[in-house]
Design a protein around this nucleic acid. Structure first.
Lengths: 393, 393
DNA sequence: CAGTATTTGTAAAGAACGTTTACAAAAAAC
DNA sequence: GTTTTTTGTAAACGTTCTTTACAAATACTG
């Protein structure tokens, strides 16, 4: 499955070459994955001498997964093949409810709708949501923008209601996973990249870190909270309860807040982009205020994680097509030279929906492999766990 | 070997219980490790019914490794058993030479001396050194305090001269590894802890991060350079070439610099501790200046890595026995509450020598396991690597 | 104090899984 | 139409771990 995820469809023979595993072994593994609806065969005309290969791909006709994205204003459900390709026509969207109970019932209803869009088995549901998420307990801890999820375990509750595997991911972690599996950048794709950072500078300053091929979770899943570094002493109040967090001065909404202050009414980043592009509004001054903080953030990321790439998601760059280069220049002077030289900074190319889907696919894939210790099955390398597992005598 | 490292000596039967692997398998593995001088048997009287167990431990009588610590002023070599216990009597120390060639020859000479101290086989040499180290190339990149190692590959050069395995580790990473394997804290030991951070606030602000049971290296091994976050705009010049790095204001030497400025002469942290403890010098004012920066550093660490523990190495705390608590209090108010609550902050209990030794032992242990991807053999999970390995057709 | 129970460690047979070997199927090349 | 090339599977073989059996060494027991 990893080969198919990273290199796209191929034949059994291609797999033997890529993996260094012999043909009969591949044959057996593939037939078992076909039975489990994880893969499917398809014919494709091809050139070259010899018996034509039967191509394999991650299941898209025979199975699907569903991604759920929860945002402050809206929720979205969308189905996708196991290759991560979203079925855009299946999209179902609704306003984020005011209570947890209504969230659950709304999701269940929408799930039925999206799930029945295609007459194929739905294997699982991935959830991307903002705020702090405790991965050990699979429960929301603190989400300033969607407080109804605080203390709730959406994954567990939905698993029970829907009868299929459900997993929760912090939205930046989900973006990180999506970039790992499905990301494309100008100079090729980012699939299989092992050390990179995803920075989401939209509604807040979210970060996902891929370190050594795994999403960095920390002890409980709270790692990567770059946005809540203390930055401005006694600064503006942040959703987290503190003041002057980095995210209050360095993301799209920080920019929008500054602009709102000036024009005397609340304007969203979307509106600002529209006004700026039509020439009705200049935000140079506000950009000038945000830039050094954002530059600090990137500098910190490079020094702390030594990524080979940083992906940035945000609308801010649509305001000024030189902004990205200015940001790079500002960061260069402030950052440890060897680590900066090691790191390429680019715009991100994935969505939260892809992230949610990537999450559930990762979960399904990992659960096939005994003893794997990935995002959803950590700490399997501890002997004491093995002891418990072998408690048959 | 992992069982012995984490839980100390035990019998083969204990291992079967801990690992969930059957007795004959353990028997075979153990006998092969005994042949390889990695383990040794010893008798110990014991109570209980049944045939008495033959205890096993990591080799200490039959093999040793050597740790080399390179610091700005001094270098130290010391031998140790594979259990990480240092043979303090074997210590050999010399001033750090002025050229790389003389460093090599001095190390080779001292190595012979330390190595021949016991008439047992020496299995490898671990090197702990300051500055930036490129783990992919195993070469020094930028070491303000020991510039003679810049651009040099001490590990490769010594492997060639000595004919045994040698590995280089950034000193904070080595401390991290030591804490992982040999650390003890007040409330028990820290062995096998999977998510923690080691902060060295001595000569600079060094950090090692254990994330998911592995040392966080990043793409080239430069991860964890907390000390070089930009902190004071146009601040004091830092060894890295920039100005106002966090480590210029938040470590023992930053404190020493502040005190030196006041008293009008250069005083070291050692001297300051002595003077303060004898009541001849008060450094409250300087501590007051350093504290908020250090608190910021810890706050950042908690938000960014979500460790279950932070270990701090530094002499500063000897100046004022309430300092540690003040630091905790300052950090608490500034840090994301759930992540702070998740994290215990304690003094570290390991030395760089232990770190160097832990490094070489980790290397030796990993090299026994095919396909492991640890600190010294990363990225084995990539299919393309497997392809290359299977290039036999 | 001899016999039994208990625990340890190893040898030999058995099961699981991947590999080597052999071969049928399907297309292009000659 | 035969040969060559490539693909995919069936059967035999090897390796590795497990199950089973058993000897060794001690404590417990009547």
């Amino acid at each position: 499955m990893r080969v198919l995820q990273q290199h796209g469809p191929c034949s059994r023979a291609d797999m033997t070459r890529r993996l260094g595993v012999t043909a009969p072994t591949i044959s057996k593994a593939v037939s078992s994955l076909l039975r489990g609806r994880m893969l499917e065969e398809f014919d494709s005309k091809q050139d070259g001498v010899g018996r034509p290969a039967r191509q394999l791909r991650l299941a898209t006709e025979t199975a699907q997964v569903i991604g759920l994205v929860i945002d402050a204003q809206h929720c979205r459900l969308v189905s996708a093949g196991l290759d991560g390709q979203l079925h855009h026509e299946s999209l179902c969207s609704f306003e984020t409810p005011k209570t947890y109970r209504s969230l659950i019932s709304k999701v269940v209803k929408s799930f039925e709708q999206v799930s029945n869009g295609r007459a194929v088995e739905t294997l699982g549901l991935g959830i991307s949501m903002p705020g702090l998420i405790d991965y050990r307990q699979q429960q929301g801890l603190l989400s300033p923008n969607v407080p109804i999820t605080n203390g709730q375990s959406l994954a567990r509750d939905l698993t029970e209601k829907l009868g299929i595997g459900c997993v929760m991911l912090q939205e930046s972690h989900s973006l990180c996973l999506a970039q790992h599996h499905y990301g494309d950048t100008e100079g090729g794709n980012s699939r299989g990249l092992d050390n990179f950072v995803m920075l989401d500078i939209g509604a807040g300053l979210g970060m996902g870190v891929m370190a050594g091929g795994r999403v960095l979770t920390g002890h409980s899943g709270l790692a990567g909270e770059l946005g809540h570094l203390p930055r401005i002493p006694d600064g503006r109040a942040c959703g987290c309860g503190k003041r002057g967090c980095l995210e209050t001065v360095s993301c799209d909404s920080a920019l929008a807040w500054l602009v709102s202050q000036r024009v005397g009414r609340s304007v969203s980043i979307d509106e600002i982009v529209n006004l700026a592009q039509s020439g009705e509004l200049s935000v140079e001054d506000e950009i000038g205020q945000v830039l050094p903080h954002l530059s600090f953030a990137i500098s910190a990321v490079i020094s702390l994680y030594n990524p080979s790439k940083i992906f940035i998601c945000g609308r801010m760059f649509e305001l000024d097509n030189k902004l990205f280069d200015k940001l790079l220049a500002a960061t260069a002077t402030d950052t440890l030279a060897p680590a900066f030289a090691d790191c390429e900074i680019v715009r991100a190319s994935v969505s939260k929906s892809q992230g949610a889907v990537a999450g559930i696919i990762e979960y399904l894939t990992d659960s096939l492999v005994p003893g794997v210790d990935g995002l959803f099955a950590p700490a399997n390398n501890s002997p004491d766990i093995a002891t418990a597992a072998a408690a048959n005598q």
